[in-house]
């Protein structure tokens, strides 16, 4: 769906938002889930790496566990909560 090098809107929730210091941004030049993960870890460091290790990565609303998957228009980064 997305061509290599196109841009994607990334929305950060909860701890992902704390790690990034913002709720949403547009990231250019990444074509796959794996490339975007690498950019996020490079940009936001250990805190983001921890979120990505346990949180969900949803590409246009569909959860993705496959780093080779092509990105779409939007990615949501959502950590799970356990507390009740």
């Amino acid at each position: 769906m997305a061509e290599a090098g196109s841009s994607v809107v990334v929305r950060y929730f909860a701890a992902a938002s704390e790690a990034a210091g913002l709720e949403e941004e547009r990231i250019e030049g990444t074509a796959t889930v794996g490339e975007l993960r690498a950019v996020l870890v490079e940009r936001y460091g250990e805190a983001m790496a921890r979120v990505l290790a346990s949180g969900s990565f949803l590409v246009d609303g569909v959860v993705s566990r496959d780093d080779s998957r092509a990105l779409g228009a939007r990615v949501d980064v959502l950590p799970p909560f356990a507390g009740g």
């Binding site: 290790a53 346990s54 969900s56 799970p80 507390g83």
Partner: peptide
């Protein structure tokens, strides 16, 4: 939404 449980201890209680 959450296909895989997080590693034990990785999510704050």
């Amino acid at each position: 939404l959450f296909p895989t449980p997080p590693p034990p201890g990785s999510v704050l209680s």
